[in-house]
Amino acid sequence: MTDQIWIQLLLLIGVAVVTVLLTRSTADARHQAIRRVLLAAFVVVTASAILYPTWLSQLAALVGVGRGTDLLLYGLVIAFLSFIATSYRRMKQQDRRITELTRTIALTQVRQEQAGLPTSASQGGHSTGTDDAGAADDATTGGRQTRGAADHGEVGGGIERPDPAQPPGPDQEPDRP
């Protein structure tokens, strides 16, 4: 038993470190609860496998697997596959968020450009910021916006703007003569 004490110590420290790392991440309540239960089971199983190596082999024999290490390997494969599955799903969710974010920025930007407001992309100057700023400006600057839109048309090589097929954005509506 004494010749195993160092490796047992090292492995137990490793388990402790992983446990601490895993408890620190946050997610929604249910997932967090499930992960904590699994984590507790993991700690118990791993610690007993380290302290009583024969126990794992007995469990393996019970379910018809030759050696305890084989059982460990199978467990690892399953854990790894579920890790791939969950991280793929998480990556997809993150992609969706990036898409939504990028789309919102792009549409806001073009709305500002068409309203004649400077945007960081078109003028390199300071951005007027949010839609709210545009809406606040509206009451007094309807004329300026139309002029700005016409400027945009000239830059674009002579498309007429504003035009009947392209009604003003909602924040321009009240100023329409």
């Binding site: 898409t99 990028t102 789309r103 792009a106 073009v110 992309a121 674009g156 090589g157």
Partner: peptide, 19 residues
């Protein structure tokens, strides 16, 4: 595209044709 006369919307990063 803008010089040719189109209205241009810019994605800040590449997302794909569907997006």
């Amino acid at each position: 595209a803008e010089a040719a006369g189109a209205t241009v919307i810019r994605h800040a990063t590449n997302l794909g044709q569907g997006a």
